[in-house]
Design a protein around this nucleic acid. Sequence first.
DNA 1: CTCCAAAGTCATCGATCGGTGACTTAGACC
DNA 2: GGTCTAAGTCACCGATCGATGACTTTGGAG
Lengths: 190, 190
Amino acid sequence: MTHKRDRQATRTRLLESSRLRFARDGYDGTSVRDVAGDVGVDPALVFRYFGSKSSLFTEAMAGSTAPVVLPDGPVDELPAKLMHQLVFEDWAEYAGEHPLIAMLRSAGHEDMKDRLRQQVCEGYLGVLSELAEGNDDKDLRTELFGAWLLGIGILRTAVGTPTLSKATEEDLRPHLAAVAEALFGRPIAD
Amino acid sequence: MTHKRDRQATRTRLLESSRLRFARDGYDGTSVRDVAGDVGVDPALVFRYFGSKSSLFTEAMAGSTAPVVLPDGPVDELPAKLMHQLVFEDWAEYAGEHPLIAMLRSAGHEDMKDRLRQQVCEGYLGVLSELAEGNDDKDLRTELFGAWLLGIGILRTAVGTPTLSKATEEDLRPHLAAVAEALFGRPIAD
DNA sequence: CTCCAAAGTCATCGATCGGTGACTTAGACC
DNA sequence: GGTCTAAGTCACCGATCGATGACTTTGGAG
């Protein structure tokens, strides 16, 4: 007997496995049989616990919002903190990518797109918008900075561009400060 | 008789239809039956002409590199031109997105990732790198600017962020100049 | 008109997928 | 130790997918 019979533990292991596979292979690229196989359990059990594949997906990715803590502290340190989290932090359980970038892999489905947008807007853009305070086109500047961080993450992980893939956080720091100042019109801590 | 029997014409129509569907729905989300159905032809014909689904994909997306003309002219006008092409130009045959962003939807497969990287590096980053001339970390600055353009395109099309989705090219122009100057350390035409 | 190569179709295969319901087994409790 | 509930399994369904090979239709050349 490899594992005791424990509904909660099995559920958790299924969620962890599906989180990894959904992130790495996308929604369509992940089969219920794969996930069940990882845990060493019958695929039918997944449906008994989660009802459907899409419900499993929802629950797996919903659990992803919780561990993503939005940084606080002085606003001028926010860009560096966000970049660290989005680009450099090691999200092992999401195939090494930030959950947002991982979710992008499944953005073909419309409900996925909605969830992504909501998470980006209410979460990251909300906290960033403080930085653009005082500008007329505050929201636009905020989204433009968010686009930059997202693009960096994508070039590093999904495209694998040569220089950026090998760049360290210190390599990016000065450019982060320069771009943030250009967009927000205020000094930014590097 | 809806259409005459014309191998070349049918081939072309299959390529056009598959281009649209691959871009809009991704590789896995597109079935050979769908593509054949668009053209009003039997699915088996697709295999007779292209051999396999992945060959169809390769040929459809390879045809995408040709029409993408890299802008020339004064280097300081390059950023604006590239942004126009990547973000605002209407690529109707690719579901309204730039082929590169469309290809990102199918980036789950490794060969897709390779093709994307090659196209980004040799194409867009190559022409952009002139702008960073004179800097020690020329390549990094170039890729960082490319990341920004890519991120903007993704936020607009794949995520659908509210402000950026509705922004016009004129709205972005001043910020484009500011960021480009911050990254390249030289004046940029807006 | 005939004929023949090419364009296009049809039936079908094997694999895989999400999903369902009946079944079996483990383990806590008395 | 027997029993009863919940955890987990098994066999199977219908749909869809990529792919194959034998078949039929078309239209131009002679």
